[in-house]
Design a protein around this nucleic acid. Structure first.
Ligand SMILES: [Zn+2]
Ligand SMILES: [Zn+2]
Length: 762
DNA sequence: ATGTTTGCTTTGACCTCG
DNA sequence: CCGAGGTCAAAGCAAACA
């Protein structure tokens, strides 16, 4: 089990080392870094085995202990652990208490940056190591930790109540030094080992980010970038071959999908518990180990992290922790970005390490933030609870207090759940000054919103349902959705989150990037041939775009402020759109390229494209299967909306457009977002000053779109999709023009200032 | 320069409620 | 039961301390 490394060390050259020779059989992973960390783990591959070799300089001790059982290394080395807790696979290094990112390229060359201030002798690096036959987490502890230290800290309470708290101190007692872990391939394909395999294609690109406070230099990325793809491909294909040879089934999380509902058909009827224990094997659980207590129910599995789930939370099967996590974070405006490629693997062990990706995954599996109660509801609820409690306590203390007294509710009569709500303002956080949109009077609203920096901006936006599409959606959705929903729609809510699972059936290759990367299947190899690999930069751009979009357009539950319910006049609709326009501005302002434009130019492109953008965005709200607009408050059949607004033809055209485009993009929101940006940077608008510049930016996104399509849908499909989308953009122009014509009829006196501004009315 | 303490934030197992 | 929200001690971090 423990072997001394065949190759001594390389450690000392703590410089910007870069991968030397690319040999699939002997890969070295240099960990380059500052003074503190100097270790060079390497992955060595042999037939059917994966060997992890950690090379360090003389002073470094690297305890890598038995994986699975915590004893037998060969059994599942992929789960390298430190101490007795299996340190999660993650791309984070903890140095002296400070967490720093581990820069890595495709899981190979990597370096660790330590934060400048925190220099200590204590560093733990956990990483994913990949090689032929599998991949797995590996943790380096450098140098040896002080036993007293950690034990002391963990002593206080934990230990007593929990079954096991193995601090790293324990690692000390284990043999340290250079150790080679040699797992057997087959162990890696066991169902329980799905994780290993799934981690394979994981780290795709490298990212360079200076750790906060770090002034150390990093490796030269360009060099790495050049090297890694080949390594990756080579390894990948070998892995695939091996998998095939072994006749392995791809055991993955995907499996669970089917498993959960059907029943525990799985292979473990016998071992309900055994199952658990096996899992526990790589469940670090530094904390309370109780987790999987009872065997009870057909354990549902958290779609986010794979932990045991009790039921549905926010519309997705999820565990308690993910539920709490989602509740606490989904509505936050800001979430620290992912330090890597925004595709961190999220499982029960790693879920804590990247909140961004965790949240992303929450959404990906269908959790809906709309289901989080709003401030108002919460308050009401708390109030009730409090009163009930009081009552109860008094009852108990005073004993008898006679009968019930149900009478609590003070509250208003109809608090219907839907709460379309209305009036009120709400609440919301803080006492901010509720600045209704309308109060802003200056003409320069537009300008103002472009300039203002204050976060207040946010509060100005009456959070509306995201719906507000273009001119209400094409002059419709926005206001209407509200009105209609408010009235009495069947509230088709709750449809099973089909979207999440369905798409795959149609197109194997259209798996989400997420799934794609975490899944090893026979098609994986094919994919690498047929699909483009996005560069890190591209990945980052996409990620950022999506985030910006989320931040800007997504909605909260708060009620619309001033919209009279029925009778959607044109003016009403236009006003409704103002909210979305404000969001659009918010969105644009978060785009670096946009901000760099002159203000005049900014206003120019906004004025020229806002209708297009609102229209285009509405595509994401359209559900072609059911022909409804999906809004947080429920679905609205397009027919209803159409008739309600009276703009029949207009609406029909719009719906048709959405339907068509949806046929191309399916549920890929990313495409919509890229298109939005492309449209935003349209150089042909009337008031655009620097057309060349704008055009260049647009080109950049056009390319990004193409690459994105190629990376996600194969070159072949991209070749069809891209042109199709381009033609849709052309149609969009026409559609927007028609909508624009209607706008000429608005009565300026009743229009929100922002809209007057953007419509060039006064 | 290091090991300790202290204080604040996040997690997550449990619990209350309707 | 389910599934919202709330609770609170443990775990993590980072800065203040010694
Ligand atoms: Zn979970
Ligand atoms: Zn991440």
């Amino acid at each position: 089990m423990f072997k001394m490394p065949e190759e001594p060390d390389l450690g000392l050259e703590s410089t910007r080392t870069v991968q030397q020779q690319i040999d699939t059989n002997e890969l070295t992973i240099p960990i380059v870094s500052n003074d503190l960390l100097t270790a060079s783990p390497s992955v060595k591959t042999e037939e059917n085995t994966l060997t992890y070799t950690i090379c360090t300089d003389s002073s470094t001790e690297v305890p890598v202990v038995s994986p699975s059982s915590g004893q037998n290394v060969t059994e599942s080395a992929a789960y390298a652990i430190s101490g007795k807790s299996i340190v999660p696979v993650m791309n984070m290094a903890s140095v002296g208490g400070a967490t720093v990112p581990v820069i890595q390229a495709q899981g190979f060359p990597m370096s660790v940056a330590t934060s400048g201030s925190q220099t200590t002798n204590q560093a733990t690096v956990s990483m994913m190591i990949q090689g032929v036959g599998g991949s797995g987490p590996l943790t380096l502890i450098y140098p040896a930790l002080m036993a007293e230290n950690s034990s002391a800290s963990s002593t206080n309470k934990t230990s007593a109540s929990t079954s096991m708290v193995m601090s790293q101190a324990d690692a000390m007692s284990l043999p340290s030094g250079l150790i080679t872990v040699t797992p057997q391939t087959e162990s890696m394909v066991l169902p329980s080992g799905g994780d290993i395999l799934s981690g394979l294609m994981n780290q795709e690109s490298l990212e360079l980010k200076h750790a906060p406070g770090t002034q150390k230099e990093m490796i030269d990325i360009s060099e790495l970038a050049a090297v890694t793809p080949s390594i990756h491909n080579a390894i990948t294909s070998q892995i695939i071959m091996q998998i095939k040879n072994e006749g392995v089934a791809q055991a993955n999380e995907q499996t669970e999908e089917k498993a959960n509902n059907s029943d525990g058909n799985v292979r473990s009827p016998t071992t309900t518990t055994g199952d658990e224990s096996e899992e526990g094997m790589y469940m670090p659980k530094l904390k309370r180990i109780k987790t999987s207590t009872s065997l009870s129910k057909e354990d549902k599995i958290c779609r986010v992290c794979g932990d045991r789930a009790l039921g549905c939370n926010f519309d997705a099967i999820s565990c308690e922790s993910c539920k709490a996590f989602f509740r606490r974070n989904a509505l936050k405006d800001k979430q620290p970005r992912c330090l890597f490629d925004s595709n961190c693997k999220i499982d029960v062990n790693t879920r804590r390490f990247c909140p961004f990706c965790r949240l992303q995954k929450c959404f990906a599996v269908g959790m809906k933030k709309e289901l989080i109660l709003g401030e108002v509801e919460k308050k009401k609820r708390n109030e009730k609870v409090r009163m009930n409690r009081e009552k109860r306590s008094s009852k108990s203390t005073v004993i008898s207090e006679s009968p019930s007294t149900p009478v609590i509710d003070t509250q208003a009569p109809v608090v219907s759940s839907g709460t379309p709500t209305s009036p009120t303002i709400d609440t919301s956080p803080s006492p901010q000054q509720q600045q209704p949109v309308s109060t802003v009077t200056s003409h320069e609203v537009l300008l103002h919103s472009l300039t203002s920096q204050s976060p207040k901006q946010e509060s100005i936006l009456p959070s509306v349902q995201s719906s507000s599409g273009i001119l209400g959606m094409g002059l419709t959705l926005g206001g209407m959705s509200f009105a209609v929903a408010g009235s009495s729609l069947p509230q088709t809510n709750s449809l099973p989150s089909i979207p999440v699972t369905a798409p795959d059936v149609t197109n194997l290759l259209s798996l989400s990037k997420f799934a794609q990367k975490n899944e090893i299947s026979a098609t994986a190899q094919l994919d690498t041939l047929l699909m483009r690999h996005l560069t890190t930069e591209e990945n980052n751009m996409l990620q950022e775009l999506m985030q910006v979009y989320d931040l800007s357009f997504t909605v909260d539950l708060e009620p619309l402020i001033h919209i009279k319910h029925l009778d959607p006049s044109l003016n009403q609709l236009v006003n409704q759109s103002s909210i979305t326009v404000l969001r659009l501005i918010k969105f644009a302002k978060r785009l670096e390229e946009f901000i760099r434009l002159t203000q005049q130019c900014q206003i120019g492109i906004l004025k020229g494209t806002w209708i297009h953008i609102l229209l285009l965005r509405s595509v994401s709200l359209y559900d072609s299967e059911r022909d409804v607009w999906v809004t947080p408050k429920g679905d609205i059949p397009t027919e209803i909306l159409k008739n309600a607004t009276g703009f029949v033809k207009l609406h029909d055209d719009h719906v048709r457009y959405c339907k068509n485009i949806k046929a191309i993009i399916r549920d890929d929101l990313m495409i919509v977002v890229i298109l939005l940006v492309i449209v935003l940077f349209s150089p042909e608008g009337p008031n655009v000053i620097n057309r060349d510049l704008v055009s260049n930016i647009q080109d950049k996104y056009l390319i990004l779109l193409k690459h994105y399509l190629e990376s996600k849908y194969t070159y072949m499909r991209a070749a069809e999709m891209y042109p199709a989308l381009m033609s849709k953009l052309k149609e969009l122009k026409e559609l927007a023009e028609i909508h624009g014509k209607y706008l000429l009829d608005v009565n300026p006196s009743e229009i929100e200032p922002i809209m007057l501004e953007i419509l060039d009315l006064k």
